[in-house]
Nucleic acid binder design. Structure first.
Lengths: 335, 335
DNA sequence: TATGTTTATGAAAATGTTTTCATAGTTGAA
DNA sequence: TTCAACTATGAAAACATTTTCATAAACATA
C-alpha cells in the first residue's frame, strides 16, 4: 500500500540515495540509471512522501494564503474569492499547493510567521489585510516570501488594479458626454483603493478643466449595499443633483441606485452611474450597471507568478507594484 | 530563531522525550515537570515542528478540500464559497488546517488519494463533485475520512439541504394562496439537488390534491442566468401561463424573471416566483426574489463536525445523510 | 601500462519529532 | 528493613527522505 523509497531501491538493487538523486534530477547519477529509476517509480506509482522530504529539505511546495481576521472579509466576498481562484489555479498548475495561514493552530494562538515556519510554508499571498497589522508586518519582514493584492506596504510586492486610471476613465467618459458636475461616492477612506480612485477622479476633473467640488465627494463607510443606500440620501440633499456619479464599488453603487430610483429619480435619464469592480450581478441589476471591470484573473495570476519567482529565487526584487488595467464596461446606467 | 525541542530540553536540563510527553499531555511525566515544561515552552514561544511530528505520528491536523475539476465550479461560486467559509472557520477553531487537494502535484499527475497519503491528509471535505468520478470513489473507499456536501455516494456521509421539504414549502405557499397551476423550472437533472426538489414539488402537489402536469416542468440545462432566460421562452410558449413558478436556483430564477418582465409580464401580479438558495444578490434584484434559503453556515459546520468526529474516531458511522432545513423567505416576487 | 581525473554509487548522517524500553528512583506493604 | 510494584526519566530507535562524503569504477592521458 504505502510505498517508500526503499521499495524502489530494493526492487532495483540500488541504494535509496541513488533513487532520490534520480527522481529529483540531481547530479550524480548516470542518465541510464536515472531513466531506469524514473521508469520503475512511475510504474509502481511511487510518490515521495512530502512530509519527510519537507523535513529534510526545508523547502516546500506549500503556499499560504492570509486573510486578515480584522476585516472580516472572507471567502464569500466575490472579489477576493475570484482572485484566489485564479491564483490557486495558476500555482497548482505549477505544482504548488495552497493552504490557509491561521493564527490558531492545535488550539494555541500562534503568529502568522510562527505558523509558516512550523509548517515550512515559504511563500504567502496576503489577500485582504490592513497593512498595519503587526502580525502581517512581522511576516513581511521575515524570510517568508510575500506578495499581496490590494494593499501596499514597504518591503512588499503588490499587485493591484490601476485605480487612478480607472477613475479617470469614468470621469472622462462623463465629461466627454457633456456632464459638468460629476459626483464621487467613495468607499471607506481607510481602503487604499478608495483613496487612489479619489485621486484619479480629482486629477482627471482638473485635466478636463473642471473644478473639484468637495460637496460632491461623499463617503460610504462600508462596501455594502446598505451604506450605498445611505450615501444616496446624502446625495439627494445636495441643492441640485449632479447628472453623473462615479461610485467606488458596485455594491455601494447598487444600493445607491436603488435608493435613488425609489425616490423617483430615473437612471440613466436623470442620473448616470458608473460603479467599480464588475461583480457578476451588476448585469442583472435594474438598470444594468456600467462599471470599471477589475481583472481578477490577471490580479491572481500576476500575484502567483511573482510569488513563484520569488520562491524560486528567479528574481531578487522583493518590492514594487504591478498595476493591472481596468476596463470601462458600458451598460444601461449610462446609456 | 528556529526553536527545536532540544532548545527547551537543554535549557531545562531534561531529555527531549520528556519535553515531548509533557507538551502532548502524554502519560509518563510528573505533574510538576509537565507544568515546568509547558511554562517554559510557552515563554520562549516554542511550537513543535509540524512536519517532523507528522512524519513520526502519521496523524495530522490537515484537512483537504476537494472540488472536482469536472464541473468547473470553483471558489467563485458563492454557494460553495460560503459553505467552505463556514467549514474553514469551524475546523480552524478546532485546531485543524485546511488545504486543497489537487491532482497535479510537483508537475506530476496524481490521484486525489495519492495526494492525501503523500501529504498525510487524513480527512477531506468533498465539496462539489460528481459521485461517479473514479478518483473520488477511490478516495471514498480508502482509509481517508470523507464527508461531502450536496452529493450522495455509498460509503459516504453527506450533509445536504432538505430539498424535498423546501420544494414542498414553496408549493404549499402557492397553493394556500389559491394558485392551482404551479410550474417548476428545474436545474440540470444530473444534479441530485434538482431531482430532490422535483420530487418534493411533485409530492406536495399530490398531497394538496392537485395533478402534476408534465408540461409545467421545464429543465434549465445549467445553473445560470442565461439558461433561466432560455427557460422563460419555453415557459411563455405554454397555452396559458401558470400564475406561480418554483425555480430550482436563484440564478436561474433571475434570468427567468428578467426575461418574463422584458416580455411584458408583471411580477408578481401576473406570475409569482420563488427561487432557491438565497444568494445575497436576490434582495437587490428587481423585484426582490422570494426564495428558499439554504443555510450554508449550518451546512459547512455540520460537515466540519462530522469530519472531525470521524478523524478523532469519536464516531464509527461512516455513512448517512444529515438534512439541513431550508427556510422560505418572502419578498416582492410573491407579494 | 601506469597514473591521474572524473563519474557513479552507496553508506551513513541528518532533519525534529514521538515512542518504546530500560533503568533509576520512589512508594507501600509485609 | 526488604522486596515488590509503580512512577518518572532518559537513551535510542524510528519515521521517509536528502545530502555529504568516501570509495569504487570508468575514463583519459602520458
Amino acid at each position: 500500500m504505502k510505498k517508500t523509497i526503499y521499495d524502489v531501491a530494493n526492487a532495483l538493487g540500488v541504494a535509496p540515495s541513488t533513487v532520490s538523486k534520480a527522481l529529483n534530477n540531481a547530479p550524480g547519477v548516470s542518465a541510464k540509471m536515472r531513466r531506469k529509476v524514473q521508469k520503475y517509480a512511475s510504474e509502481i506509482r511511487y510518490f515521495p512522501n512530502a512530509t519527510a522530504s519537507k523535513l529534510k529539505t526545508k523547502k516546500s511546495y506549500a503556499i499560504g494564503i492570509v486573510f486578515s481576521e480584522q476585516l472580516n472579509i472572507g471567502l464569500e466576498h466575490n472579489f477576493f474569492s475570484r482572485i484566489l481562484q485564479a491564483f490557486k489555479t495558476y500555482v497548482e498548475k505549477e505544482g504548488y499547493e495552497i493552504s490557509f495561514v491561521i493564527s490558531n493552530y492545535a488550539k494555541q494562538d500562534i503568529t502568522y510567521l510562527e505558523f509558516c515556519v512550523q509548517k515550512n510554508i515559504s511563500g504567502v499571498l496576503i489577500l485582504a489585510c490592513l497593512p498595519d497589522d503587526p502580525h502581517i508586518t512581522e511576516l513581511i519582514n521575515s524570510s517568508v516570501h510575500c506578495v499581496s493584492t490590494d494593499t501596499y506596504s514597504d518591503n512588499l510586492f503588490t499587485v493591484m488594479s490601476d485605480n487612478r486610471t480607472g477613475a479617470a476613465l469614468a470621469v472622462r467618459f462623463f465629461v466627454e458626454r457633456g456632464h459638468t458636475r460629476v459626483a464621487y461616492i467613495s468607499g471607506p477612506k481607510e481602503a487604499i483603493a478608495c483613496r487612489e480612485r479619489e485621486e484619479g477622479y480629482r486629477n482627471e476633473l482638473i485635466s478636463q478643466g473642471l473644478q473639484v467640488d468637495e460637496n460632491l465627494i461623499i463617503e460610504s463607510k462600508e462596501f455594502s449595499f446598505e451604506h450605498g443606500h445611505e450615501a444616496a440620501y446624502r446625495f439627494m440633499e445636495l441643492d441640485s443633483y449632479p447628472s453623473a456619479v462615479f461610485v467606488a464599488s458596485d455594491e455601494i453603487a447598487m444600493g445607491f441606485t436603488k435608493c435613488l430610483r425609489s425616490n423617483g429619480l430615473r437612471i440613466p435619464q436623470d442620473v448616470q452611474i458608473i460603479g467599480f469592480d464588475d461583480i457578476p450581478f451588476v448585469q442583472y441589476f435594474e438598470p444594468s450597471l456600467s462599471t470599471l471591470r477589475q481583472n481578477t484573473t490577471e490580479l491572481g495570476v500576476s500575484a502567483a507568478k511573482k510569488l513563484i519567482d520569488l520562491m524560486d529565487a528567479a528574481t531578487e526584487e522583493k518590492t514594487g507594484v504591478k498595476y493591472i488595467p481596468v476596463e470601462l464596461i458600458e451598460r444601461e446606467s449610462t446609456k
